[in-house]
Amino acid sequence: MAFVMVLSWSRQIYLRFFLDARMDSFLAGHAGAFAAWSGLPRILLYDNLRSAVLERQGDAIRFNPTLLAFAAHHRFEPRPVAVARGNEKGRVERAIRYVRENFFAARKFVDLDDLNAQAALWCAGPAADRPCREEPTITVREAFAREQPSLLALPANPYPCELQLAVKVGKQPYVRFDLNDYTIPHTHVRRVLTVRADPRQVRILDGADLLATHVRSYDRGAQIEIVAHIDALVARKREARHHRGLDHLARAAPASHTLMLRAAERGANLGNITAHLLRLLDRYGAAELQAAIEETLASDAAPHQNPVRLALERRRESRQIPPPVTVNLPEHVRSKDTLVTPHRLDIYDQITGGTDELA
């Protein structure tokens, strides 16, 4: 979207380009023009575009409430032009035609920032050096120097022109905004958060607390991630798996709780011990694991999975039981014993038409 604002007397032009025509871009264009001119007009004329006028019935006008709030903050009067009254918006239409013919035609640029940088130089250069329409003996630059002191002063605090909306987060730590997903801390899932976005960044807040700041993406279906968010989620899932494993062990072999407490006192890797004990539980069963852990605790052996494994092996050998070896067969071997229901032989007569003659 090309945003063009022109002062009525001096014809000073402000030009800026955006990637969309949303309300936040519309207001950001205003704020950019006011900053470039170090002031603003007392009255702004608008064509009856949706960003300014939501509904109009004759002289009854319903303004966009966001524009009204912006105008109240800057103390200017928004005024729509009359319908089908071309003389009231001729200045803007001539300025747009001037931009199209003298700036945009055959211009090359790398990206949006480059285009806006060129637009700023053009507004301060060739566009300002053209003759002023009200006084052809002076330039637009000289006319603006006379007009600028009569502009309203800028407010002390800038108006927040960011796009703001509430988003509902599901069970995944991502916020969907503008067809892209942005990460948030996993501690804030299943909540309603606030997204504040400007052309360069996306901020995600929980009330007044800032949760994340991302570079804004204009792709579709992209995942914009902060590494710390992903690492924290992975650590949380690893911790959850560890606690689930401990609970499973404690239910199957209650003596494992005492073994893990002694291992923790020695500073052992509890996650590694838990994983090995769970594999021993699958191979030997709960009763054998419980007995082996009790034997380990009663001895002077270290609270570790290796003494437990050796105790399990001694118990197995004493009973002359073969080792519990897990055999992973390939798919074609595992499926060879699949039950297949044969067809009845009488259906073949139906296929051949009920005759025994050979073709």
Rank of each mutant, 00 (worst) to 15 (best):
V195A: 10
V195I: 14
E225I: 13
H186E: 00
R196T: 08
F177I: 14
L211F: 12
I230W: 03
L179G: 02
A232C: 07
L205V: 00
Q223V: 13
I204C: 02
R176I: 14
L193N: 08
P199C: 08
H229E: 06
Y174P: 10
L211M: 08
I226R: 15
D198Y: 08
R236G: 04
R203P: 03
R236T: 09
Q201E: 15
H186W: 10
Y174D: 02
P155R: 01
A228V: 10
P160M: 02
I226P: 08
P155T: 08
V227A: 15
V215W: 00
H186D: 03
P185S: 04
A235W: 03
V195M: 11
I230E: 02
D219I: 03
A156V: 09
R236H: 12
A156R: 07
T194H: 04
P149G: 06
D181E: 13
L193K: 00
G221Y: 05
L210T: 08
V169D: 03
D181Y: 11
L151P: 05
L151M: 07
P199R: 02
V189L: 05
I224G: 09
Q172E: 11
D219G: 15
A166G: 09
T213H: 01
Y159Q: 09
Q164L: 11
P173T: 01
L193A: 07
A208P: 07
A156W: 02
L151N: 03
Y174R: 08
S217C: 13
T183F: 10
I204L: 08
H186G: 02
L152C: 07
K168Q: 11
T183K: 10
D181H: 13
G221D: 08
V195E: 11
K171S: 15
T187N: 07
R191V: 06
H214F: 14
C161E: 11
L211V: 10
R203G: 03
F177D: 06
P185H: 01
S150Y: 03
P149D: 00
V215A: 12
A228Y: 01
A222V: 10
V227N: 05
A235K: 04
T183V: 01
Q148P: 03
R238G: 04
L179D: 15
A212D: 04
L151C: 04
K171Y: 11
A212P: 00
D206M: 06
